[in-house]
Structures are given as structure tokens and as C-alpha cells.
Nucleic acid binder design. Sequence first.
DNA 1: TGATTATATGACACGAGTGTCATATAATCT
DNA 2: AGATTATATGACACTCGTGTCATATAATCA
Lengths: 214, 214
Amino acid sequence: MPTDTFFNLPAEKREKIIDAAIAEFAEYPFKQASVARIVEQAVIPRGSFYQYFVDIKDLYQYIFQLSGQKKLEYLHQHMSDMLTNNGDADVFQQIRDLYIAGLKFAGEYPRLARIGSRFFKEDNDLKREIMGDLEQKSDDFFGALLGQAQQRGEIDATVDVRAASFMFFTLNFAITDHLLAQSDPNSDSILDTDAFMEMVDQMLYILKNGMAAK
Amino acid sequence: MPTDTFFNLPAEKREKIIDAAIAEFAEYPFKQASVARIVEQAVIPRGSFYQYFVDIKDLYQYIFQLSGQKKLEYLHQHMSDMLTNNGDADVFQQIRDLYIAGLKFAGEYPRLARIGSRFFKEDNDLKREIMGDLEQKSDDFFGALLGQAQQRGEIDATVDVRAASFMFFTLNFAITDHLLAQSDPNSDSILDTDAFMEMVDQMLYILKNGMAAK
DNA sequence: TGATTATATGACACGAGTGTCATATAATCT
DNA sequence: AGATTATATGACACTCGTGTCATATAATCA
């Protein structure tokens, strides 16, 4: 957690530091991120950095949490719209909404999405530490969603919920990552998501109906 | 490509270097791999390293190519067995064989599998360079397999082959990665794949028949 | 054997990054 | 104002890594 000193900073300076950090963590995996580059980008003296954060891990955790929060807000925003208009959507519709909103988020905030995408590719103690914190939250999320749908009879009783939620999670991650790979990691310009939304529908069709000829 | 000097080395010494390199690249992503650790592990002087390889990238490319070759051999071995016993398998059976053989490979050669798994998570010029070399070979592979199956009428004509091959590729990668995540990256002991093979069957069932209640 | 070619070796110069600390400056309090 | 507390600053010592090079040793050739 950043120090009080950091939070006492004038908003503009604080934002500049946050922005530099986002740029850094969007472009480099955690182990390659450097304080040197961040302070240069933010135009603050190196000593100040250590007045605000205990180390780069401290900053990373803060930025990661900020990203997650931003995405959750975005999803709530877009999902509640959908729920309002359509409270009786089936699982496949619900999951589609989730995928589509996720892609839109990645299209609008590519740097934040990239931080998330990079995170899941990490393989170090920090990741295990953070994952431990938020449990397998996402896995559980799909698990609960699918379990309920199975009880409502929307999903075949023979389907293994663990396998299904693994697939939904994995494919969601992969399609988002694919989208992000299209553009350069450095830029923050809005991405075109149309082709990927199309792909989502193709994938969900398969997950719902299967590929075997009828 | 390693130098002639490297290939002229007594087999034992060469193997020791290769082994140290495999251990390094299995444990660290390319950018974090270090010559210092490799020469220490292999017990050769630093100067010798540069007599054998132009730099660590040179070594990485060699080891990566070696891994790929080993996996291909393994698959050919295990797939041809299957084709011999069962030349008329349908796509789902073929893909199952591929998944299962891939998991068995990862179970038997976790370090080599880890190198592959890490590679796909990389995001740097080296990856783009290597990917350019071998095209989207894997994507094409599934694409061809599925295209043929669609013509044979095993796969529904409405199914989008690009989406389907993306799914097969992604899930294959993810399940293998999941297996490798179970054990510590450093060790080379054989992994237990049973639960993952079970999972494969659950996933392929869904991909074939869909999740929707009948 | 003497010369030539191949291989081995590790000290070294250099670069990039980290976290700290003595010192300077600003803000707040009495 | 004088004292105290908060913040800013950048030089510095340190670590870890890279690639090279002068020198030593071994192998091969004529």
C-alpha cells in the first residue's frame, strides 16, 4: 500500500505517477518493470518514489488492484444495464454479455486490460500471493453461474461444471489476449473489437450446441 | 546456432550444458534467463559459453528447437501407434489422441513442456521472430484437421472452423499449462496426469455435443 | 620438433538497476 | 520567529548481469 505521503500529493502529480506506472506494467511483466523508467516517465526524483512506495511490488499491487476495480465497475455498469433490460436471460446470454463487456473494456482501456492479461501469464511468488488473496474468484464465479443454470435445467445434467467453467474462463482470457496482441503494447488508443465479438458468438454457439453434425 | 566447437565437444560435456540450459529455460522466462546461472550449473567457465554460443538467445533458439523436435517425435510415436490400431478414427478421437499424447509428454518431460508453455506466454521480439519462422503452424494444423472433418460430414457445416481451431488450440495449451502449474518448475520428476486426462474427456464431450440441455 | 590452429579460462570494463541516506526545503505549530 | 514535523532530492554504494580479451593450454600438422 502506498504511503500517506503519496495520497497527500496534489491529484495531478499523483495521477501522473499512476499513469506512468500503468504504462510500465502494461508494457513489461512484473519482473522487468523498473523504478528507473517509472520515475523518468513521471518526472519525479528517485528518492521520492521510495517516499511513496516501499518498493515496486508495493506499487504493482496498488495498480493491479486499481485495474481490477476499474474493470469490475465497468462490468457492473454494463451488466446491470443488460440485467435491467433482460432479467430472464439464460446462461449463454449471460456469459455472452460478460464476454462482450470484457472485450469492450479491453478495447477502451487496453493498458488496464494488458495489465490483467500479463498478470495471468506471470509465474512467480507475487502471482501466487495475489491469487491466494482473491482465491480462485473467477473460477468460482463461472462455477456458480453454471451450477445454477444446471439446476434450472438450461445445461445438460451430464456436463461437468468444473470442466465447463475452466473452458469459459480460459477462452475468455484467450480471446481478450488475442485482441490485445493486435496492437502495440505501448499505445493507449482504442482497439477495434468487432471481429472478436463475432468470434465470441461462434465460440459460444459451439459451446452451447456442440460441433458434431446433427 | 551453436558453433562447431560446441558440437565437437565430448557428448558428456555437451549434454551437461544442454541439461543446464533446459533447467534454466524451464524455470525462467527468456528475459530472466542468465548465462551466469547456466555456466555455474554446467560447471564451465564463462568464456567457454561464448565460445559455444554467440549469446543466450542463440542457446535459447537451439534448446527451443530441440524441445519442439522431441515433442514432435513423441507425438509421431504415439499417434502412429494409434493410427495403426485405428485408421478410421473420427476427428474427436483424433483430437483426443493428440491431447492425451500431449499430456503424457508433459507428464514425462515436464521441463521440456514447460519451455514450450513459457514460450507461448512470452511477449517480445524473440517470440515474434520464432513465431514468424514456424508460421501459425499449430493453428493451421487444427484448421486442416477440422476442415477435412467438416467435408467428411463429421462436423456441422455451420461451425466456424477458425473459431473451433482457436478453441482446440487454446484449451490444449491451457490444460497442459494447468498440469505443469501443479508441480514445482525446478523439478524434473514425472507428473500425474490422470485427473487432467479425465478433464480432457469432459471438455471434448462438451465441444462435441454442446452444453445445452437436450 | 617446431609451427600452427583450436580450445579453454577468468579477470575485467561496462551497463542497468536497486534502496538508502545526508542534506535541503517547505509546511505547520506554539 | 523559532521549533518541529513533513516532504523532496540526487549522489552513492551495492548487486547482478553481460560480452570481451589477453593469456594459457592442448591438439594437429608438416
